[in-house]
Design a protein around this nucleic acid. Structure first.
Ligand SMILES: [Mn+2]
Ligand SMILES: [Mn+2]
Ligand SMILES: [Zn+2]
Ligand SMILES: [Zn+2]
Lengths: 142, 142
DNA sequence: TTGAGAATTAGACACAGTCCAGATATTGAA
DNA sequence: TTCAATATCTGGACTGTGTCTAATTCTCAA
């Protein structure tokens, strides 16, 4: 699926066992059409851009539903809010701590060597690499 | 420094340019004597165990001061709270999503291959690896 | 002893996220 | 078509972290 519009959003939702409602389509469209990492607040603002149509409770309920159905994933990098990620491929992130902007890093080219064995009785749920970045201070300028 | 007690806490604080007060010593002692990852709430509960002596504002102010002076670091793995880490060595974490427990992974033995180049104009602030783990479902038992 | 600066405090406040009971929309059997 | 069962949505109260501020208390050098 290359181009995202409200029509194929419904199919996308159905494909994940989600009943496509008006609100769910708008929320999915906000995430998938931009292919960006958005906070719940940003999603609500986007969806209610022109006229208010979707409540806060529905935004949170819907995001939780999407997570549950593996349509999206969440990214925990900021202590004050969760980011929602339409990319469920195995990948990692650059996190610009100054701007709050997340960028994907494809996991395909990456390997982590030397991880110790898991403690007894647990299994891996996922491995996240977060590269925290900031605007470089360029000594010699300014 | 092998054994942590309230006396050498004061030296530890001074060594980081922090004026050792009663409250700061208690908070540092809570973290360093346990060598564990604690939330602000857990730290306040620990410090005020017997009789209340340290306010919420002081706990947060002090943790921020410790961070600023690089005495501790924070670990962002849970959307609802920050963990404070007395280990400032370069290291990574196992995070048990069921219990909320963090375990250190020494960075010494670990290498990450294939990370892409940084975007223009930014520099690396830090690289975090978080291995999310959960109790293994053991099919065949129960 | 004293008072200026440092530190602490209670409690109001901010704000992301949760919860709930009532309203609304959808569905499908009759 | 009808209408009741089910699914979804909603406003608004509420919770839990974390922040802020003005007032109080502490510390220490003079
Ligand atoms: Mn809409
Ligand atoms: Mn104490
Ligand atoms: Zn991503
Ligand atoms: Zn740690």
């Amino acid at each position: 699926m290359k181009q995202y519009n409200r029509d194929n959003m419904a199919d996308l939702l159905r494909g994940h066992g989600i009943n496509p409602t008006h609100q769910r389509i708008e929320i999915a469209y906000a995430l998938f059409s931009r292919q960006q990492h958005l906070s719940a607040e940003q999603i609500m603002a986007t969806v209610n851009d022109r006229h208010s149509e979707t409540s806060k409770a529905t935004v949170y309920n819907t995001l939780k539903l999407f997570l549950d159905k593996n349509l999206i994933r969440e990214v925990i990098v900021d202590p004050s809010k969760v980011f929602y990620d339409p990319n469920t491929q195995n990948h990692h992130h650059f996190y610009n701590t100054a701007s709050g902007h997340l960028t994907d890093i494809d996991a395909a080219g990456i390997s982590i060597l030397g991880l110790p064995m898991l403690p007894e009785g647990v299994e891996t749920e996922g491995v996240d690499i977060i590269v925290r970045i900031r605007p470089s201070e360029r000594p010699g300028l300014v």
